[in-house]
Amino acid sequence: MGRVRVVIVDDSATMRTIIRGCLSRDSEIEVVGEAADPYEAREVIKAQSPDVITLDVNMPRMNGLEFLEKIMRLRPTPVIMVSAEVAEGAAASIEALSTGAFDCVPKPAEGHPLDAFRELSEKIKAAAQTTPRTLANRVQHKPGSSDFSPNGRIIAVGASTGGVDALSSLLSAFPAHCPPTVITQHMPASFTGSFAQRLDNQCAPRVAEAWNGAPLENGQVYIAPGGSAHLEIGGSGKLVCQLREGDPITGHRPSVDALFSSLARQGPNVVGIILTGMGRDGAAGLLELRNRGASTIGQNQASSLVYGMPRAAHELGAVEIQLPLGEIPAAALSLCTAGNRRKAT
């Protein structure tokens, strides 16, 4: 593949210059066009057919989120939202990621702007390797049967890039009385509360940010808060959520590895699931789970927005069974159904 072709869409000429300057430092990226609003962008995109688009939220004539929906519906292209709205307006970020944006990068509030965009080039190159999941072909599920009878197993899930869409798909298939479910999704601190609330509104189970001492109960899903702590599961009797401060693990805090490792002593009472994401966080922890008798499921390459974390886990031997995203809910729930204590085969 040649250089990644990028179109920058932002109403500020100064910001377009800053983004162009940042990207010009990477020889693998070429900015092939700019636009000040979605109407200009539409013509530039038609003419240039970029590999990736950077898109602001607040723009004249059409909101960036509305334009993102049109891109995903009419001309699916990897999009990275670059906006002040995604720094403080977590709801805008979750909306963008749910609509199909690859990732969100906040504009710099202060300091050196090029430093604030130091990860933008890598995200653009990663986005160029993906095929956006259009609004029309997203996996849709009906909630699981209300007759579901849990067998006491716990579901633990790890995800990163692409996880907002994947987790929405997974949990939308869970019944209200689902197994206790704990999730670490790589996400900034300002996002996880809004994300949990969105899932709670969309899905049958109760979904909330985890807190110290939160009990693992049927029908409850906990999302690891972003920020300064790892979500772990412990307790001498009834299992509860524990937020443990500590250094990042595999570059992340909260870390999927930390969550999985904390559940390893539960062995066969756990179903571990690793979903789409960049990097390898969760691979070692999932292997630890499998070695202790847990059932482990990995999202397959074809259905992953980024086949990084699932690939790392699979290559390490941590994944017992690989499945398309659309088949994972039924497989996990089957393993957690009363009378089924066998592992997946």
Rank of each mutant, 00 (worst) to 15 (best):
Q301S: 07
G158Y: 05
K142T: 15
L120H: 12
N212A: 09
N340Q: 04
A176N: 08
L97K: 15
L286P: 03
S190I: 04
V9L: 06
R25G: 15
A189H: 14
L55D: 12
H186T: 05
D165S: 14
M72P: 06
K238P: 12
L199P: 07
G64I: 00
N151D: 03
R5S: 09
E88G: 12
D11I: 05
A128C: 05
A91M: 15
G251F: 11
R292H: 08
A196C: 07
E30Q: 15
N63W: 13
R280S: 15
G89Q: 12
R138E: 15
Q220G: 00
T250I: 10
R292S: 04
V6S: 08
L170N: 07
P310Q: 09
S24A: 12
D281R: 13
R20M: 00
F195N: 02
V207Q: 00
Q202T: 04
L23Q: 08
A166Y: 02
I321C: 15
G89M: 06
C203P: 02
D281Q: 12
H252A: 13
N269K: 07
A176C: 08
G285M: 04
V105E: 00
G144I: 12
V7G: 02
R20F: 01
A126R: 04
R61F: 14
G64H: 03
V319T: 05
V221I: 01
T130F: 04
I19D: 04
A176S: 08
M81F: 11
V9Q: 09
V207E: 00
D115W: 10
F102H: 10
A204T: 05
E34S: 13
F195D: 07
H252D: 09
P132I: 03
V270H: 10
V182K: 04
V319A: 01
G277D: 01
S27R: 10
P180E: 11
I154D: 03
P106Q: 01
A109F: 14
N201S: 04
M72L: 03
G227C: 10
T184C: 14
L23S: 05
A127P: 05
N340H: 05
E119Y: 13
I53P: 07
C241H: 01
N340V: 14
C203K: 00
P76Q: 11
L120V: 15
A204H: 01
A87M: 05
Q322M: 11
A47S: 11
R20N: 02
I124D: 12
E288M: 12
I29Y: 15
K123E: 03
T161N: 02
V79W: 06
I297E: 13
A189T: 03
D147P: 10
K238G: 11
L97D: 04
E95D: 15
E34F: 06
L286W: 00
V306M: 06
Q197M: 07
C104P: 01
S304Y: 05
G293R: 07
S255R: 13
G33T: 06
A13V: 11
F67D: 01
N269G: 12
T130W: 08
I183Y: 10
E43T: 08
V82P: 02
E85W: 09
S146C: 10
G308A: 06
V4Y: 04
I183M: 11
V44H: 08
I233F: 02
P188E: 14
Q322W: 07
S27V: 15
L55E: 12
R16V: 00
H230W: 02
T134C: 12
L167M: 08
L135M: 08
G226N: 02
T276P: 02
